[in-house]
């Protein structure tokens, strides 16, 4: 029996699923990375993911085009991020409280609008999804083909975005300014860096990443929206961001760890083993806590994270 369990856990199917499931977490984690590198604690990732998932279905429902749905999602999440940014940066709201407020707002609004548009509190009608991409050359490779040859386009988008995000953050002038803003806003200000612009930009860009992640949740696989579809992934993403040391690549690695545990959990449920389902389902949540507790001890967040900056004018 143990062999069977291990075989299931470490099968290619599990890894393939883990890569897929990592998409929303990793993108949201990078959203968190950008926001926090600029000094804004972003608990609101959850709400931004949820907004994206809903807007994607809404867009696809009304236009009939899945990719227009994705565009909708990116726009909506970026807008919710802009709202969050307005409250935290301009109105100096406590970041954590405002983030939780945004999450509750997003949950209420999406659930309410779902009923207004479709009359159901459970799930939306099915809409056009994004489907899967078949890449001929890669698909024929032995193991890689199974993992990446026939995946959702979101998987490739994720890899591209995360590499792009990493370059932006560590190799460009803008990235240097973002990092400096989160570490030492006074220093950045005294060098003539536009702090407020940088903060708003980072938060909104982070929201856009969450929009992609959210769109994947609804259009990447299931092709419908259901109430509270993000189900805590935004919080996991924040943990992944911390575990990944505020680096998009690290965040990707940590997200993969979470998504792998999720994939294992799902596949174990399909097996007839002694552990009850409810306990198996706890695995990703417990893992998040364990990793967070282990990671934070040596994590070093941006020095001015969570502070408000007022130039005294």
């Amino acid at each position: 029996m143990w062999l069977e369990i291990l075989g299931t856990i470490f099968s290619l199917n599990t890894f393939e699923a883990a890569i897929r499931l990592a998409v929303p977490i990793a993108l949201a984690a990078m959203g968190g990375t950008f926001s926090e590198r600029a000094g804004i604690i972003n608990i609101g990732l959850e709400g931004m993911l949820l907004t994206g998932a809903f807007a994607a279905v809404l867009g696809s429902y009304f236009t009939g085009s899945a990719w227009l749905g994705v565009a909708f999602a990116v726009l909506a999440s970026a807008m919710s991020a802009a709202l969050f940014g307005y409250f935290t940066i301009e109105l100096k709201a406590n970041h954590v409280v405002a983030g939780v407020g945004l999450n509750i707002l997003a949950l209420g609004l999406t659930t309410w609008l779902m009923q207004v548009f479709w009359g159901s509190r459970g799930t939306s009608p099915a809409v056009t999804g994004v489907g899967r991409l078949h890449i001929p050359f890669i698909a024929e490779l032995p193991i890689i083909g199974r993992l990446l040859g026939r995946q959702s386009p979101f998987v490739y988008i994720m890899f591209i975005l995360i590499i792009g995000g990493w370059v932006l953050l560590f190799k460009t002038p803008l990235g240097l300014r973002i990092r400096m803003t989160g570490e030492h806003p006074e220093a950045a200000d005294s060098l003539g860096i536009k702090i407020r612009f940088i903060k708003h930009f980072s938060v909104i860009l982070g929201g856009a990443f969450c929009g992609f992640g959210g769109a994947y949740l609804s259009l990447g696989n299931l092709n419908w929206f259901s109430m509270n579809m993000s189900a805590g992934r935004g919080y996991m993403a924040l943990a992944a961001n911390i575990f990944g040391q505020w680096n998009p690549l690290g965040g990707l690695g940590a997200s993969f760890l979470f998504s792998f545990s999720d994939a294992v959990q799902m596949r174990l449920q399909g097996l007839d083993i002694a552990l009850p389902h409810n306990i198996i389902q706890m695995i990703p949540f417990v893992l998040t806590i364990v990793i967070l507790a282990g990671a934070v001890v040596k994590a070093r967040p941006p020095a001015a994270l969570g502070n408000h900056y007022s130039p005294g004018k």
Binding site: T172, P173, L176, E183, H184, A187, A303
Partner: peptide, 29 residues
């Protein structure tokens, strides 16, 4: 030059000096 130095501990000397006035090549630092 401020009394409390306006320097980011975790960045290099170069990064601290050029921030806001960066030189780029192909859009990269």
């Amino acid at each position: 030059v401020h009394q409390h130095f306006m320097l980011v501990d975790r960045m290099t000397v170069t990064e601290n000096i050029i921030a806001g006035q960066e030189t780029t090549r192909h859009g990269l630092l």
